[in-house]
Amino acid sequence: MSGKNSVPSDFASYYLQQATKELAEDLDKVRGADDFKGDALPLLIKALQQGTALFSPADQQRIVEAGKKQTTPNADDDTSSSRSSSTGSDEEQ
């Protein structure tokens, strides 16, 4: 439940990462441009991240959760641990 709020930020960081990967070549070129100074870097990051607006909250959640599934090798473990924590901590002692 607590993870719910972090979906937008999780997604934003994934988006940025993916966008940087896809556009690596162009980003290098931009960094070499004459006018790349001052605020240019934060502006560039902001520009990239704006794209998250193209994804509905439901899609964002879908993608973030798919990513989480990937990182936890066994999805069943994940759910069972959350269950046990809700049934009480007595068992764990």
């Binding site: 931009v30 006018d35 520009a47």
Partner: peptide, 15 residues
């Protein structure tokens, strides 16, 4: 144009 200005400008338009 692949420049910082163009990117800043498109950010503005997007917003």
């Amino acid at each position: 144009k692949l420049s910082a200005t163009w990117i800043g400008y498109s950010t503005l338009l997007f917003n």
